[in-house]
Design a protein around this nucleic acid. Sequence first.
DNA 1: AGCGGGATAGTCT
DNA 2: GACTATCCCGCTG
Length: 194
Amino acid sequence: MDRLGRRFFEGDTVEVSKKLLGSVLVRVVRGRRISGRIVEIEAYRGAEDPASHAFRGMTRRNRVMFGEPGHAYVYFTMGMHWCLNVTTEEPGKAGAALIRALEPLEGIDFMMRLRGQRRIEDLTSGPAKLTQALKIDGKMNGEDLAESHRLFIERGQIVEAIGVSSRVGISRGAEHMWRFFEQGSGFVSKGKPS
DNA sequence: AGCGGGATAGTCT
DNA sequence: GACTATCCCGCTG
């Protein structure tokens, strides 16, 4: 209930990323809800952000970053992993928020099976871990989170203490403090910021 | 607890 | 032909 609509995503990428902390990412598989609260996220802007996939303009891979806000941008990386972003900004302007970690809420047994892990802290504490746990891959690229019945975001519990750092695993654009996370959460990724 | 390396393939130069 | 918006395992101490 209380799903986030188009308006929520249509704004400055950094602001939308911060607002997204504490929201609940919901995946529905065969009628079952698999969900987690967003506890870590990063902002990737467009032409002015050298760390962004959209930095050098539109390509086949990054085109959904240039489209309507509130869509899933799912990309393949490191030869074996999928990462989930939510598109931001007005149509025509690139931007996306990379969801990096969740606090598991519903469907924990399902996540354990898909991940082959039994510690709750190991299920969704990283961008590629959470896509595996929620059964998200390239087929979900372009999914409209404002309309979809299998992937969407709901309003959640506010994050009181927001931590800020540079983004993980990038070289250019490292001066920007565009990673946001819940301080003290045991579900944040272990990756080191640059 | 922290570091180092290997797996593995799409994307862009 | 180089470069990843990563993860996991094995080693060290």
